[in-house]
């Protein structure tokens, strides 16, 4: 092979490497998702399982329920009760109500957060409207449940947990 031919050959090979790495950058997205799924690192949007069903009746916890919308999502969104008193280990059922007062269908996704942050890892949600996107037709109102258990291992100094949901609009889904 001539010198110029050899250079052009190597150029093509290295270009392919660069292109493959560009694709690899995008492949990292499903790759990381898969790793998180397998190892259970990032399971905020997945139903938990509860192993210990022992109820610790000696302790009372106050769960404050909070609801917000962001980025001009034109929904009204509120829990049916502001607070609930529960025991650790007890199966709790609460409901939220969302309504879409606009004249067109809108899709949103709720993202939970916890105060104190530490309580999040003891909060086991068996069912939640935040596991999937919610599409509301024009003028539709919907009641949605959250079923959860607070694990008994929750540190003693935590007396109140705030469960806060924020609904974000999902663009391009009507």
């Amino acid at each position: 092979m001539s010198a110029i031919g050899a250079n052009a050959y190597l150029l093509r090979k290295l270009l392919v490497v660069a292109l493959v790495m560009f694709g690899f950058g995008f492949a990292l997205v499903p790759l990381y998702k898969k790793i998180c799924e397998v190892t259970g690192i990032n399971n905020i949007a997945r139903a938990d399982t509860v192993e210990n069903s022992q109820v610790d009746t000696s302790r009372w916890l106050t769960i404050e329920l909070d609801a917000n919308t962001r980025d001009h999502l034109p929904w009204t969104f509120a829990p049916l009760q502001k607070t609930v008193r529960v025991h650790p280990g007890q199966l709790v059922h609460v409901e939220y109500e969302i309504s879409n007062p606009t004249g067109s269908a809108v899709t949103g996704q709720a993202v939970p957060s916890y105060g104190p942050q530490l309580a999040g890892s003891y909060f086991r949600k068996l069912e939640c409207f935040c596991f999937t996107q919610q599409q509301l037709a024009a003028g539709e109102t919907r009641r949605m449940p959250v079923v959860f258990v607070i694990e008994t291992g929750l540190p003693d100094d935590v007396k109140t947990i705030t469960l806060s949901y924020t609904f974000f609009p999902v663009e391009g889904r009507g």
Binding site: V29, Y32, K33, N42, G108, Q109, V111, F168, V170, E171
Partner: peptide, 21 residues
Amino acid sequence: NFFNAAGGGDPVMFQHIFWFF
């Protein structure tokens, strides 16, 4: 929605990809 939490993305994912570079 690669990095947009509301659309099912993950902002931490950006950090993982960025620091891989």
